[in-house]
């Protein structure tokens, strides 16, 4: 119980640090702390596999990607942040808006606590003994949810292709061989990809 309050305080503190930090690198550090604390919270909720995934994918992969982009962009000639931040102008309305939404959610949570949360429908609860273990997760992932798992591969493939098309290097393609006369007579069937995305 005390551990939860300590963890939640640290989670909110690192979140606030993330969105108020003056430089993106500090934000990344705050987000790293946030993700690690969240992984511990997942462990308290019996989500072992997700805790590991949280550390490996978020802290390991996504934040490193952020760091690389920050390093790439900061090495330019211009200063990274130009002009004052928008927070003084729009920070108060944003805070009020967020507070209203927060109140709505907290109200519904408190009401659910008073009235009583709905019980799980019949046939949904299960696996109470081994719930949350990696084996349980793996069996559920590869038997009942195999199709969503495969669709995940498609999503990642689309992301990879999109990133390569977007941020692929700007240098001109290597010179092609001189076209033969018979090639020039034909209409090109497939347009070069570079022309489509420009």
């Amino acid at each position: 119980m005390i551990a939860f309050w300590l963890l939640s305080f640290a989670l909110i503190a690192t979140g606030v640090f993330t969105i108020t930090a003056s430089k993106p690198v500090y934000s990344v550090v705050g987000l790293l702390g946030n993700f690690v604390i969240l992984a511990i919270l997942y462990l308290t909720l019996n989500a072992e596999f997700l805790a590991v995934i949280q550390l490996v994918v978020y802290s390991g992969a996504i934040l490193i990607l952020f760091l690389f982009v920050i390093a790439l962009l900061s090495s330019g000639v211009k200063p990274f942040d130009i002009g004052p931040d928008r927070a003084p102008r729009i920070g108060v309305p944003a805070f009020v808006l967020a507070l209203i939404g927060l109140c709505v959610i907290v109200f519904s949570v408190v009401r659910a606590a008073v009235v009583g949360a709905p019980n799980a429908p019949e046939g949904i609860t299960g696996q109470a003994d081994a719930f949350g273990s990696v084996g349980d997760f793996g069996v559920a992932l590869f038997t009942k949810n195999l199709l969503p798992f495969e669709v995940t591969a498609l999503v990642l493939m689309v992301a990879v292709i999109g990133v390569v098309l977007l941020a692929g290097d700007e240098k001109p393609a290597p010179p092609r061989r001189k076209p033969h006369a018979r090639d020039l007579e034909r209409e090109p069937i497939v347009k070069p990809v570079e022309k489509l995305i420009r």
Partner: peptide, 22 residues
Amino acid sequence: AKLWANNAGHIFAFLVVTVAAA
């Protein structure tokens, strides 16, 4: 997922992680 002792929430969170990576 913990509340209902059902790991469909874990599966969904896993999918959210991949979408977040993309």
